[in-house]
């Protein structure tokens, strides 16, 4: 059993929890994920590692309630335990193994969409710990849905916020913000790391390809085991089939077939999950929770 030692509500329907899982905490790195199974009847839910404390043996997860499983997860309180918590799974972020010297030469921009801000955070934090300055764009539909802004400000050199409705920061989506930085504010970047809804990552990649900036994305396909045994998580990257749970979840965004990935993600969307998305984002998925726009 894996005990919940902290629970916070970051925004409506977005929760942060610290879970006691010493083996995971001891060996995890930014970029990796865990699989949570709440109880006997629960499904195996993949969630990105958002922070960890090796001394306390805890791992932080942040999740957004969508359908049955995530809603049920949110009903757990401090002191309760999840039955299973397996990990770390997947590969660590490429940045982990790059030398400080190499990293210092690069101008890196992190792009976080909605709940995707949580998995961006540990990477930015790691850069800070290694003395490397990076910029970060956080996008969401409105002010209430911006999460971890204060934390991010402590670790990134510059944090830019964009909201679709203009209720906070710049009015527009993350792409508007990136364009503004590069085209109007004279910023130069050699690497973008974008994490958020697939549709946001797709459009960020279209833009960064035009701008000629290498872009890493973190994919979140449907998964079952998370160890390479089932193939549910397969996706096409540069015409090759990859298993996101063992080959990823981070990939070169300019090579990912996002359209196929989006279709595959729909496979088990429940009515509730769909209704919640529709309620939040409208039929056309315009103004996705990330603040991106559709075609």
């Amino acid at each position: 059993m894996y005990k919940i030692v902290k629970k916070e509500t970051l925004a409506p329907n977005i929760y942060l929890m610290d879970i006691e899982a010493p083996r995971v905490a001891k060996s995890c790195y930014p970029g990796q994920f865990v699989i949570v199974k709440m109880d006997e009847k629960g499904e195996r839910i993949p969630l990105t590692i958002c922070d960890y404390n090796r001394d306390l043996g805890t791992v932080t997860i942040v999740f957004q309630t969508l359908g049955t499983s995530t809603k049920r997860m949110a009903e757990y309180e401090v002191g309760d335990s999840y039955r299973d918590f397996s990990g770390p799974l997947g590969c660590k972020s490429e940045l982990v193994d790059e030398s400080d010297e190499e990293l210092r030469k690069k101008h890196i921009l992190f792009v976080a969409g909605g709940v995707g801000t949580a998995p961006v955070y540990p990477q930015v934090k790691m850069m800070k710990e290694r003395g490397i300055d990076v910029d970060c764009v956080i996008g969401a539909r409105n002010k209430d849905l911006i999460i971890l802004e204060d934390e991010m400000k402590k670790v990134a050199k510059n944090v830019y916020v964009a909201t679709d409705d203009g209720s906070y920061g710049m009015k527009g989506n993350v792409n508007d913000c990136i364009k503004d930085l590069v085209q109007n504010q004279g910023k130069q970047y050699d690497l973008v790391i974008a994490i958020g809804p697939v549709i946001m990552m797709k459009f960020v990649c279209i833009l960064t390809k035009e701008l000629g900036i290498k872009t890493i994305v973190s994919m979140n396909p449907i998964m079952v085991d998370g160890t390479g045994m089932c193939g549910a998580c397969r996706l096409t990257v540069g015409n090759e089939v990859k298993f996101a749970c063992v080959d990823g979840p981070e990939f070169d965004g300019h090579l990912v077939d996002f359209d196929e990935s989006m279709k595959r993600q729909q496979m088990y969307k429940t009515e509730e999950g769909r209704a919640a998305l529709k309620e939040k984002e409208g039929d056309t998925h315009k103004n996705g929770g990330c603040g991106c726009s559709d075609k």
Binding site: M229, C230, G231, V241, K263, Q266
Partner: peptide, 26 residues
């Protein structure tokens, strides 16, 4: 020996195509 093989034919990543491992594990 748990790693499943696929055929590499067109359409294999469509929704509704599973490895036996996935189908049986579910």
């Amino acid at each position: 020996a748990g790693l499943p093989k696929f055929m590499g034919i067109p359409g294999e990543n469509a929704n509704g195509v599973f490895s036996a491992n996935e189908y049986l594990t579910r």
